[in-house]
Write a protein that binds this DNA or RNA. Structure first.
Length: 255
DNA sequence: CCCTGATTCGC
DNA sequence: GCGAATCAGG
């Protein structure tokens, strides 16, 4: 399998949608989880919350040095003046709430355009939450949107536990032949996704009217403000929250 | 154990 | 550029 443009596009979309490398690999088919991760890095898609990476290289080096020093007993203790905080990055006395790493890890790839941000209507009409101290956009809690996997054609599937049998065979459903219908006239298709439009899927994958939200994104996120509200929610205990998670598209469809 | 992503390094 | 092997945290 080679990395065709389509496959790369799918990888990007899914990666940005918060899918795990395993899910992406499975959806693409013919590639391993590692291949996906490797490719994602080469595409500079990184900046995903990693279970293994709380520190920057320097701290890591320091830790390694420390470990080495510790291991080799008393010998050359900490030759590196690492502890000093950067002048620019003064450590604010953060109360250390539940700040997710994903927020801190800003997208390096996102080109900041001098585009005049016309309006940022902080309309929070539909939010029932009585946040006394709104301040800025409240810190998102969960780094993982509740999307499931995306198939080879870019359509989305259900939970990963329900489509295993065929490991590499043809897609489970026939893809719609991209017919330019009036219905899809002003709908956003997968291929039209880009960095600044909402990638929230609407409708059911495989159906003629399946499309994406397409509104302007909440800067720094793959979704618009509205859908960010749906995508980023409190993380449930483990990854075993299949019981009716608020799926972005109409919900599981009994066939 | 399982999962995750990061990194390395031979190809 | 690719991805298996390896690493390391949850």
């Amino acid at each position: 399998m080679s990395w065709t443009d389509e496959r790369i596009q799918t990888l990007k979309t899914m990666w940005e949608a918060g899918q795990t490398a395993s899910q992406i690999a499975e959806a693409l088919g013919g590639v391993s989880r590692n291949a996906v991760i490797g490719k994602a890095h080469r595409l500079e898609l990184q900046a995903r919350p990693s279970p293994v990476k709380p520190n920057d290289p320097e701290a890591k080096a320091a830790a390694a040095a420390e470990a080495a020093a510790s291991a080799s007993a008393a010998a050359t203790p900490a030759p590196e003046p690492v502890a000093a905080p950067e002048p620019g990055e003064v450590e604010a006395p953060k109360p250390a709430p539940v700040v997710p790493p994903v927020v801190a890890a800003a997208k390096p790839a996102a080109p900041v355009e001098p585009e005049p941000v016309a309006e940022e209507p902080e309309d929070e009409e539909d939010e029932d939450e009585d946040e006394a101290a709104p301040a800025v956009v409240a810190p998102v809690r969960a780094p993982q949107p509740i999307l499931r996997s995306v198939g080879p054609g870019g359509f989305l599937r259900q939970a990963p536990g329900e489509q295993q049998p065929p490991s590499t065979p043809a897609p489970p459903r026939r893809l719609v032949p991209a017919k330019p219908s009036a219905e899809m006239a002003n709908k956003t298709s997968l291929l039209e996704l880009n960095d600044r439009i909402c990638k929230w899927p609407l409708g059911h994958p495989g159906e003629p009217d399946f499309h994406f939200c397409g509104k302007a994104v909440n800067p720094g996120f793959p979704y618009c403000v509205d859908h960010c509200g749906h995508a980023y929610q409190a993380q449930l205990p483990r990854r075993d929250r299949r019981p009716t998670p608020p799926l972005p598209f109409g919900g599981p469809r009994p066939r």
